[in-house]
Simulated scan of single mutants.
Amino acid sequence: MQTQYNSYSTANSVTMLPALLKCIGFLSLCFLSMPSEAKKLYKYQDEKGGWHYTDKAPPAKQSKEFKVEVRQLKVASKQRVRLNKIGEKQQPEFTIRNDYFGPIQVEVVFSEHKNVQAAPSLPRKFVVPPGVSKPLFSLGAIDQFQGWRYALSYRYSLGEPTARHNSQAIYYPPFASYRKFQISQSFNGKFSHTDKQNKYAVDLSMPEGSEVHAARAGVVMSLENDFFKGGIDKQAYKARANSVRILHDDGSMAVYAHLQVDRAQVYAGMRVEAGQLIAYSGNTGFSSGPHLHFSVQVNQGMNLVSVPFGFSNSQGKVSQPKAGQWLSGFVTLEKSVAHGF
Rank of each mutant, 00 (worst) to 15 (best):
L292E: 06
T284N: 00
P308A: 09
V307W: 01
Q300G: 00
L277T: 03
N313S: 08
Q300N: 14
G289T: 11
N283V: 04
S295F: 00
V318S: 05
H291I: 10
F309V: 12
S314D: 10
V305I: 15
E273W: 01
S319N: 12
P290D: 05
V305Y: 01
Y280A: 07
S295Q: 15
Q320L: 14
P290R: 09
A279H: 07
P308M: 11
V298F: 01
F309R: 06
G282Y: 06
S295G: 12
V307A: 04
G282P: 10
P290W: 03
Y280C: 05
N283P: 02
S281Q: 13
E273A: 15
S319I: 13
N283Q: 15
Y280W: 10
Q315T: 08
V318N: 07
A279Y: 01
G289W: 11
L304P: 01
Q276H: 07
P290H: 05
G301K: 12
F309S: 03
V305E: 12
Q276Y: 02
S312K: 14
F309T: 04
S319E: 14
Q315R: 15
L304F: 00
T284P: 00
G310P: 04
K317H: 08
F311Q: 07
P290K: 07
H291T: 09
A274E: 09
N283H: 14
G289I: 12
V305R: 13
S319K: 15
L292Y: 03
S306M: 09
Q276L: 07
F311Y: 15
F309Q: 05
G275S: 09
H291L: 10
H293W: 08
G282C: 13
G310L: 02
S287Q: 06
V305L: 04
L277D: 02
V307Y: 01
V318W: 02
F286W: 15
H293E: 10
A274I: 04
L277Q: 07
A274T: 08
V298L: 14
N313T: 06
F286P: 02
F311W: 15
S312F: 01
G285P: 11
Q300W: 06
N313K: 09
G301W: 04
H291Q: 14
K317M: 09
G316C: 04
G310V: 02
Q297R: 15
G310M: 13
G310Y: 00
A274P: 03
S287P: 06
V318D: 02
S306N: 08
G289P: 10
S288H: 12
L304E: 13
V298W: 00
G289K: 13
S306T: 13
L304H: 00
G282W: 06
V305Q: 12
F286N: 14
E273G: 14
L292D: 07
G285T: 11
A279N: 12
L292W: 02
A274S: 14
Q320E: 15
A274G: 07
H293M: 12
T284W: 00
Q300H: 14
S314Y: 01
I278S: 05
F294Q: 06
A274N: 03
F294K: 08
V307T: 14
Q315Y: 09
I278L: 12
V307D: 02
T284V: 01
V298A: 03
G316K: 04
V318A: 04
F309M: 10
S281D: 10
S306L: 11
P308W: 08
S288C: 05
A279G: 04
H291E: 12
T284F: 00
A274V: 03
G285N: 11
F311N: 06
N313Q: 06
Q300I: 00
V318P: 05
Q297K: 10
F294R: 08
